[in-house]
Design a protein around this nucleic acid. Structure first.
Lengths: 158, 158
DNA sequence: CGACAGTCTCTGTCTTGTCAACTACTGTCG
DNA sequence: CGACAGTAGTTGACAAGACAGAGACTGTCG
């Protein structure tokens, strides 16, 4: 947010890049989210969790692992898992050897719904995001922004 | 959200670009937001509104204009303006000739606080975002993502 | 073993934003 | 003028996350 209009704003190159990130994110996400809810009845945050679990070992992930792989706080994950569990797509199980902990495991139904939804989700992102970039631009953006997810735990400044 | 890990995911080039947008957005925003709140006592959404008003005619903007320039719904803007108004940074005034309407106007205090906060905000974005890209990368990202804010009202596919 | 600091998850409470419905007003058409 | 469709903004009810702190457990040190 906080984008300079044309007046007495800095209007630097990097601010345009930042503004692009901001808007691309918001606009694509809005469409993708609405589509997902309309067609599958759950939001992107669920798909995010389901996708993490899909890609995880069969015995699931702990709350803190889900949290580390997401943009939520621990309490946010607890409540998110509550909802997904209530819908029957995941299940909480005990962790052997640590009775504080919880493993979150995909149910068969959860796996099925993930597969469906993820298959439907990709073309939406492709249509709303990728199709508006040339292949070179896709590569350029992917390279330029890779530091932000290429495990740099904190994004700390240099 | 919903990022493929390394397993049996498509792992296309454009998905990496999308993931970069997602993560860059989230990580930079998180830091910028925290910094703004810590140093100026208000969140980015306020700065966004203040910046729009700063760049607007002296007699302010209508609710719907603020809404068009933001990522909020009308009711979201109403409530956002409520809070900023309660803090004394903007004021609602009548629109001559349309008694349904409202102009939102920056107070002197609001202008002052905007200036302060915006000056402080830019270097944060520069540090957290721009400094991790080369100048060429900045240009590439700015060019590639410009369709998303270059007035394309809806981001419709096509 | 017992104390105690640290860890893992959950809960109470609050904030923020959405959606749908509502009030108030405008302009048009008879 | 009076009806009426459309527009501007607000409100009620609710959903989703954040934060701080609680509860349950673990491992270590005496």
């Amino acid at each position: 947010m906080a984008r300079p209009h044309d007046s007495n704003r800095p209007a630097t190159r990097w601010f345009d890049a930042w503004r692009g990130v901001l808007y691309a994110n918001a606009k694509v996400l809005r469409v993708a989210e609405a589509d997902l809810v309309a067609r599958f009845g759950f939001p992107l945050s669920w798909l995010d969790v389901l996708a993490q679990l899909h890609d995880a070992p069969i015995n699931g992930l702990r709350i803190q692992e889900l949290q580390a792989g997401s943009l939520f706080t621990p309490s946010g994950i607890t409540r998110l898992v509550d909802r997904i569990e209530a819908a029957g797509l995941v299940r909480r199980e005990r962790v052997v050897g640590d009775r504080r902990g919880v493993r979150v495991v995909l149910t068969p139904e959860g796996r099925r719904r993930h597969d469906e939804a993820f298959r439907a989700h990709l073309p939406i992102i492709e249509r709303e995001f990728a199709s508006r970039l040339t292949v070179d631009q896709q590569r350029a953006v992917a390279d330029a922004l890779s530091p932000f997810w290429h495990d740099d735990p904190d994004g700390s400044s240099g």
